[in-house]
Design a binder for these strands. Sequence first.
DNA 1: ATAGAAAGCTGATGTAGATCAGTTTTCTAT
DNA 2: ATAGAAAACTGATCTACATCAGCTTTCTAT
Lengths: 230, 230
Amino acid sequence: MTCKFTNTCTIHNKNLTLFDELSDEEKKLVEENTLTVSYKKGETICKQGSFASNVMHIKEGLAKVYLESETNNLILKIAPKNSLIGMPSIYEGNNTAVYSVATYTESVVDLIDMKVFQQLLKTNAKFAFRALNIMNENIIQIYGRFFCISNKQLHGRIADILLCLKNRVYKSNTYEFAFSRSELAELTNMSTESVIRVMKNFKDDGLILQKDKTLEILNAEMLSKISNLG
Amino acid sequence: MTCKFTNTCTIHNKNLTLFDELSDEEKKLVEENTLTVSYKKGETICKQGSFASNVMHIKEGLAKVYLESETNNLILKIAPKNSLIGMPSIYEGNNTAVYSVATYTESVVDLIDMKVFQQLLKTNAKFAFRALNIMNENIIQIYGRFFCISNKQLHGRIADILLCLKNRVYKSNTYEFAFSRSELAELTNMSTESVIRVMKNFKDDGLILQKDKTLEILNAEMLSKISNLG
DNA sequence: ATAGAAAGCTGATGTAGATCAGTTTTCTAT
DNA sequence: ATAGAAAACTGATCTACATCAGCTTTCTAT
């Protein structure tokens, strides 16, 4: 039996039921304090260290959540449609964003006022409980990614991310592959050249098929083995 | 300016004020559903995959929170006195522990019934909000650790953990060093031999002093530089 | 249409750190 | 006190990757 939490994708996103816990009045309050903004590919939605003025709900598109340092970025997670991000910035005495968020593709994002969001957390226990649930699913996702990046070697890491995209992000065997080799490299913490070599291997071995910008997973079982062996 | 979240220790634990949010009645309920248990060095408090029957509050001692796989353990965090652990297991549809917890030293732990804890979260918004706060501080801690382990090289990682022990765990320049070289290796995701070599370097360079089981940080500034440079 | 820039690709070289194979020191239990 | 085990240490070797350097293909903009 392999460990449950050693992959980037251990949990499958449910639909966002968080706001179902609100009363009509509360819903209205949220609506009145939400801005819906469209972003182009590659734009920054949220900058680490800036004032954390809102919680973000990705309505459409795909984004990365990442830590910045002088040398590297560390991608914490990929945020597909329906993700709620920005909650970790909520803690006693903090008012800055703990991470950056940027889009991979064109995206539509709801920016929910942080003060209103916090107020709801403080007054509506069911809402807060659901928020905690979402946070927990999130943290487990990141545990898996942590394990993957720090313990698996190159082939395992690429296999893992390809399966993650298939299972959690696109939920399809064939998907429009939004990542360049260097973006994949950033995502898996490896060099672009290594990504190219591994992807070539997978292609030559008939595990995947990439035509134009479409990627098809031909042998998910084998990729899964590779991912689990590390 | 270095990134704020690239070290294992970015946040300093406050005292556990979570239960202050409870009414006398609720406090009584918690007390009635809490077991206080003493553990010896090396004992398992919680086993990954088992039924998550309680939330744990470390009253005394030191523990590690870690993911298990066939090959490696990945230590997610060190839990000093006053840590509250086990919350991530709380999410829709899950009833198993997502990670294991084991003691480094003799420890005293409050085991709080999970159902009671969840009930409080669902009914007391202030309690839930505080719990979310604690989770968030936790997750940020783990982000820092994630960055550290996946991006820094050996010297940086050891420097980081030594500073973390000084600043967050023991809060003193001189502390009883509870870790063997192989435990340090597990903690930093490196081989025991490498830990020995790096510790030797630090000792020879006058950055640390280890006598019997006591470790003294002689040059925290230099260690900090090493940690930040990677 | 075509130049310039990305992105993709490939082989050669370099290196951080693991692994291996010991030796020495310290701890532990009778 | 002493044997046996664990921990600490050391040097030699090996290897998974990164890095480098250059080449080809694809994209993009005038």
